[in-house]
Amino acid sequence: MNLKKILTKDSILPELKADTKKGVIEEMISLLVAAGKFSGKTAAVQAVLAREEKMSTGMQNGIAIPHGKTDAVDQLVAAVGIHHAGIDFAAMDAKPSHIFILTLSPENRAGPHIQFLAEISKVLSRPNLREKLLNAASTDEILNLLTV
């Protein structure tokens, strides 16, 4: 799967400012709205929070993959955010989360939505890449690391 088709420079935040779970989700969704990917921020935030309520998407080793299904989007959209200090995202290993991959996909439309998350999770399973992402200074560098 070609991650470049989904990930673009304008959907990457090298320094997240929020310091709560809800705040991070809102900040990343706002970025996607500002980039003109879709409108309907409220519905999107609700969809992601509803999924988080079922079970947190905070994984291990500082990675979180918040996602949701909403008809506010026509197709899969994704954002990447880095939080250097790390926040409590109720991760599986109880460690703070630093790298966030947020995706939104339409409610009833077929497409490789989970597959995108799976592909990016596979990329993030490499410890040295995670290290490089945390040290990346620009959106270009982050995009390059994730898509090459």
Binding site: I114, L117, A118, S121
Partner: peptide, 9 residues
């Protein structure tokens, strides 16, 4: 190497 998608789905 393909287990990610299966597990997440």
């Amino acid at each position: 190497d393909q287990q990610y998608v299966a597990r997440l789905m």
